[in-house]
Every structure is written in C-alpha cells, then in structure tokens.
Amino acid sequence: MRDSRGQLSLSTVEAGIGVLFILAVTMGFAMGVPSPNASEPQLNAYASDTATVLVNGRPRHQGATRLTEVLQSNRSFTREHAALRRRVDRILPDNLLFRVRTPYGTVGYRKPAGVTVGVATVATTRGKLTIWVWYA
C-alpha cells in the first residue's frame, strides 16, 4: 500500500457514497409518493350534480323538463342556449368554469390545457349531454 497522502480514508468515501444513495431513495419517498389527485373526485361530483339538476329541471314552457325544451330542435337551441348557459352558471359555485356539449352545439368556456377537469355525461331523449367542470 503506497502512502495515502491527500486521500480520504476509503471507509469514509464508502460511507459518503452510501449516504448519498440512501438520501436519494429518501428524497424519492419525501417528494415522489404520488398524492391522490384531491380535486378530481370533487370536480366529478360537481359535474354529475349539475347534470342531474339540469336533467330534472322544471320546464318553463310546455315540455316535460327544461332540458327537453332547450334540446327540442336546432332552432330552440339557438333561442335558448344563453338561458342554458345562465342556468349552468347559477347551478355551479362561483369558483368553477364549465363547458356543456349538447347534440346541437356547445355552451360555456373554452377548456384550458393541463388543468384537472371533472366530467359527467347524461343521456337525454335527444342524445348525449356532456359537462366539463374545472377550477377557475
């Protein structure tokens, strides 16, 4: 063994490497454990609640429910889509934005990329109605 001038003792070097390794694994636990996405079940609940309330809404004219009045035809949708948008806006809490797709067209806001979105789909007599909800 030659003179170990200027060198750390080998066991210290090994311990240093070991500490680095253990710390790396620990960092993985401290930061990397995927926390369940807390806002998704809540957003899904908001979306499905809105869909249920909309589907069972009391009518304003002669239809069976409010939604069948709005989704009667292309003309009725053009006439009433502003009212549908106001209705959804009022059902949802103020901190949420939404988008509703009906067989005749879409109302609401543009969905931004990269946000957590809750979604619900209901079947109506005129086709599928899909609601997306996200935090503003």
């Binding site: 066991s11 090994e14 311990a15 070991g18 710390l23 694994v25 620990t26």
Partner: peptide, 21 residues
C-alpha cells in the same frame, strides 16, 4: 476511527430515511 464514524453516519441516515418513508 473513520470506519466507526462512517458506520454511525450511515446508520443515522438510514434511520431517518426509513422514518420519512
């Protein structure tokens, strides 16, 4: 001496790591 210190440091860090996990 350095071996003892190395073992002590390594054990402590391993303990902390287990606790965090």
């Amino acid at each position: 001496l350095s071996l003892a210190v190395a073992l002590l440091v390594l054990t402590t860090v391993a303990g902390i790591g287990l606790h965090v996990a």
